[in-house]
Design a protein around this nucleic acid. Sequence first.
RNA 1: GGUGAGGUGGCUGAGUGGUCGAAAGCAGCGCUUUGCUAAAGCGCCAUACUCCAAAAGGGUAUCGAGGGUUCAAAUCCCUCCCUCACCGCCA
Length: 423
Amino acid sequence: MLDIRLIREHADQVKARLSARGGDSHLQIDSILECDRDRRAAETQLQTLQSERKRMSKEIGARKSKGEDTAAVEAEVRGLGEQITKLNEESAALDERQRELLLHLPNLPHEGCPIGADAAANPEVRVWGERPAFGFSPKSHVELGEALGMFDFERAAKISGSAFVVFTGAGARLERALLNFLLDLHTREHGYTEVSPPVVVRPETLIGTSQLPKFEEQLYRCERDDLYLTPTAEVPVTNLHREEILPLEQLPICYAAYTPCFRREAGSAGLGTRGLIRMHQFDKVELVKITTPEAASAELEILTSHAERVLQILGLHYRTIELCTGDIGFSSTRTYDIEVWAPGQNGYLEVSSCSHFGDFQARRMNLRFKDAEGKNRFCHTLNGSGTALPRLMVALLETYQQADGTVLLPEVLRPYFGSERIQ
RNA sequence: GGUGAGGUGGCUGAGUGGUCGAAAGCAGCGCUUUGCUAAAGCGCCAUACUCCAAAAGGGUAUCGAGGGUUCAAAUCCCUCCCUCACCGCCA
């Protein structure tokens, strides 16, 4: 959520930055300003009347204690009360409307965010390793994995529908090995604190990280209890400190969390494609940071390097791109995507998206810290996948496949998996 | 799921209709005094919104949340959320 004062005082700048996103969100600014003006006018009027009522009520109290008759004044104040009720409704409605408008407005892109219309304009920031060469035609993970008995899409469809998977045998074991490897790496070497949060959350939690109100149709909802399945651990983990004022010396807070993630993928292209690339439920290890505005930009670089490190250790070729203004997500000011090479797809797959949200989420969840001067200020939040599991598995299987259809695992995974080869 | 007890400022904790935004204590900040690693005294010490060009200074709201009663609500009524205890059920 943007600061209404920023919008009020620098409307043109806000509009300009929003238009860099390419949508029509900047067109909302004028109606927000109008609502803000009406709201403040109503509030000022309301407060004047309240002040009057308060004064007169005190007077009634004072006169009653002296035994005087106050019937006439009481009648007068009663009339005031009616006006106050009406104005209060008006003012509350305007307040609610303003909040609604602000909740639907995306974040401003960071000054450093490259300008561009869409994904085609995303600059490549780094490339690591190179595409592996094969003396044969590399197979897709679907072909490899099904032959090795690692997953079963048909039975998953039987029990849950399309775009679900059952990991079986070596597949289930590899999933578990990867999770343990990722959590160990981030907690032991990168200093994150491991958390294991609920994956069913209340609507306010989703408003905090901004999946609601705008992206409701992408979420699974348990209607009876008004709870939602989390689309990413970002949601429960970032909200852990909602409505708190954190001491400066506690920052940055760094959490690593493994959770399953649930996405309806309504209207997604490519949902019909076979394989592990886009599913309704998948596992992910997420990295979350809560920090100060001053430290946040540097933390984004660190966070991204931690996600990249996963691929480096696994020996997987990848590239890092930065999303341009036309491609960054709703709540992000700046985002790096890490794309791993998948030989069987003959293309790159996004396995991590690392974003800096500024105080956009912190405002929504009223997450603050006490600065060196003792002032309460909004935190900055960041997160990145570290990494998504199924796509990492795709890249692993396809990169390390052998001519005989077996998969020779990278060194670091062998103790976790319990052998060096999937066969 | 049932019954009961609760939810007050950074913390502890008073307050059951009227100068209560809220006693007192602790912690914190400032000043003073005395001085062997500290004590005493005094003062300050919530948040949000809003008015004013700004500062200074006002105003309003906030005692878990939302409604209601009343001239007036931390205080009375209703609904919800949460915590604790016991019972029931249960991986």
